[in-house]
Write a protein that binds this DNA or RNA. Sequence first.
RNA 1: GGCGAGUUAGCCAAGUGGUAAGGCAGAGGUCUGCAAAACCUCCACCGCGGGUUCGAAUCCCGCACUCGCCUCCA
Length: 456
Amino acid sequence: MRLHNTLSGQVEEFKPIEVGHVRMYTCGPTVHDYAHIGNFRTFLFEDLLRRVLLQQGYRVTQVMNLTDVEDRIIKKAAEHGQTIDEFTEKYIEAFFEDLDTLRIERAEHYPRATEHIFEMVSLIDLLNEKGHTYVTDGSTYFRIASFPRYGELAHLDHAGLKAGARVDVDDYGKDDPRDFVLWKARKPGEQSWETPLGIGRPGWHIECSAMSMKYLGESFDIHTGGVDNIFPHHENEIAQSEAATGKPFVRYWMHAQHLQDAMGEKMSKRLKNFTTLRDLVAEGYQPRAIRYALLTGAHYRSPLAFSPELLKAADSAIKRLDEFAVRLGPIPTEAEPTPDVRKRWDDALKDDLNLPAAVGHLFEFIKAFNTRLESGKATPEERAGAMAMLRHANRILDVVEFPEVVDAEVDRLIAERQAARDRRDFARADEIRQQLLGMGIQLDDTKDGTRWKRVR
RNA sequence: GGCGAGUUAGCCAAGUGGUAAGGCAGAGGUCUGCAAAACCUCCACCGCGGGUUCGAAUCCCGCACUCGCCUCCA
């Protein structure tokens, strides 16, 4: 298995620290609003990574944080006259609903920042002891000058950082503009925690270090997020984690590219050019088409422009997969996937999660196998293998609807209609077809007889 | 200004040295009581200009354009 590592900028052979067990931390949502589909592109990339690792036989321990204390949350909660918990509850709930809608597998842990204040304070304490911090007006800062390797992940050198640095955009004082805040002193009206560091609240970056190390250890395998997290968030995580433990923090950093709007601009809350999952579902798009579009529309490291056309193409492609399943019919699933196709599929995914290529191989196979089915050459064994292959692929894609095994009533009506057709009573035949359609069953007449499938 | 990614058919997209996967859309055909599906066929000289090579979308140089990051945005 090969994965792209932002640290080296290269695709590298993946080897977990513990043989057969992958520990990964996936940066989760800030629950100040509904997540938009750009956010979900990243979460789907992480779902892909998780599923591929599992399919490769790894045990996976995945942690996804819920950032529930942050500037926007504090501001909005105050505007609503609510506590942080009251305000974020709705969006946390919505987030999990959205994960289900997109069939994103659950991680093992979803730690919340507000429930790990103690761990964060402990970590900051450790940084204090080791001389990486300073305090100004009750806020604690990380001194970047104390961590020479700073900039390694984002490939920025200190000089470059200085050139790009702006002066103090927030209200907190720093010795050096590059430094970042670990603990923010309480400001009037803000929810705060009373700790040995003073009354205040944690900075953003420290939560991920504290929570990832709590659940995964001081060194773990994979840490993911959107590319916008590379700098400063992940860079800061490395600095504070490694400064505290003296150990390598993360071995493989993986980042998903952005989803763009139809104009090719980054989708973001700030630009107000975003779409939520809920909007799309309300517009009548199938969730599985959204899943398919975001997952296969482009390799995860390439930008993807989102458009209605993309969704429509996804919808049609899924229908083709459904149709293939219907055509193979309800058959046993114990068979092994068609070997050569399986190999091409697996190899593509093992090559830095190249799902677009894998899907290409799958469709190539489907096209060829349809030809065999058409000519009547496909053996029952081959059909079983093809079905197993489709199921194998669908363990990653999770978009196909497989035909149900039997439905006696449907079979009876189909037989009755066939009898009508045999005596050329097409009026009766069409009547039965309409009747079944009313039951959500669509009939397809083929050379091999009549097939049926459920329609929406 | 610094760093990085990218430019492949109408749209999306894979492809890192041997003369372009796949999906969507489109055209024609086969099949068919009808419908739908399926199948077959057709549809790209890979941003521009040089260079290396027997041979380049793939390597090198230059140019153009797009996008991202450069302090709390997945």
